[in-house]
């Protein structure tokens, strides 16, 4: 099993698409840093945001980078990794050759899913790491100042950044499961990526409609920015716990559908 995962990881990791996707996740925090360094900051900002305080310390930049990427660009990359998993092999014509080996379809799905998760995790982790390096280079290694003027020591901030990153990565599992499910049903990668992004966008639109009230707490994207509360005083974690738990039913349902569909599917491509 681990052998099969390594082979699959090798297949997906060393290719132009992965370089570009991971490269973009590395580039964006650098671009943010450079923009803040060389752009002009408003003297009296209307609102305190993670961007306004980002120049305070290199440790602030990962937070700005996560805000900038975690609800859209990262989602696209993750949807690509998971949405291509099965559909792309189908498109290449190699799926049937994977399935005439003495290996169960479950094992193929598990292998593909593990690699999609690994790549998505890498994409999420490089964002704060890149921000940390670029930010420290330009803004130095200082205490973190948050938008509500709370100050965290460097070590405390590092721990919270790590936790926030893990939370952002975890929030992608619902999207991974969704894109992966569509990937077992279509032969075009574009279809599964667009399909899953479409549902994410619908969720985000509904989340913005205040009149829906508490019904919105069931939306897959509702708690995506709950990690920002780690950088408030007093720190509130209820939303993060809810957000963590909310992904589970989505993951279970989407993956169960993926398994069911893929096992009854006739491989005609």
């Amino acid at each position: 099993m681990t052998g099969a995962i390594l082979v699959e990881l090798r297949k997906q990791l060393f290719r132009l698409r992965t370089y570009l996707a991971i490269g973009a996740m590395i580039a964006i925090p650098v671009i943010i840093t450079l923009s803040l360094e060389f752009g002009r900051q408003p003297r009296h900002p209307r609102e305190q945001t993670f961007f306004v305080v980002a120049t305070h310390s290199g440790l602030n930049v990962p937070l700005a980078a996560l805000v900038a990427t975690s609800t859209f660009l990262l989602v696209i990359v993750v949807a690509l990794f998971a949405g291509a998993a099965i559909s792309e092999e189908s498109n290449w014509g190699s799926l049937r050759y994977l399935l005439v080996r003495p290996v169960s379809r479950s094992r193929l799905l598990a292998t593909k899913l593990a690699v999609a998760c690994a790549l998505s995790f890498i994409a999420a982790v490089v964002i704060p790491v890149s921000g940390l390096i670029a930010g420290t280079f330009f803004f130095g290694w200082h205490e973190v100042l948050t938008p509500d003027f709370t100050v965290f020591s460097q070590s405390e901030a590092l721990g919270r950044i790590a936790l926030a990153t893990l939370y952002v990565a975890w929030c992608m599992t619902g999207v991974i499961a969704l894109a992966f499910m569509i990937s077992t049903m279509t032969d075009t990668t574009l279809g599964s990526v667009a399909g899953s992004l479409g549902l994410v966008i619908i969720s985000q639109v509904m989340n913005a409609i205040d009149s829906l009230g508490n019904n919105r707490t069931f939306l897959i994207t509702h708690y995506w920015r709950a990690w920002e509360q780690l950088f408030q005083y007093p720190t509130e974690t209820t939303d993060m716990v809810n957000g963590f738990l909310l992904q589970i039913p989505y993951v279970v349902v989407f993956l169960a559908l993926a398994w069911w569909w893929f096992h009854r599917r006739d491989i005609l491509t």
């Binding site: 099969a4 082979v7 297949k11 050759y97 994977l98 290996v103 292998t111």
Partner: peptide
């Protein structure tokens, strides 16, 4: 070839 073979365990 290698990937095909190793995927079969």
């Amino acid at each position: 070839l290698k990937s095909f073979w190793l995927a079969g365990g």
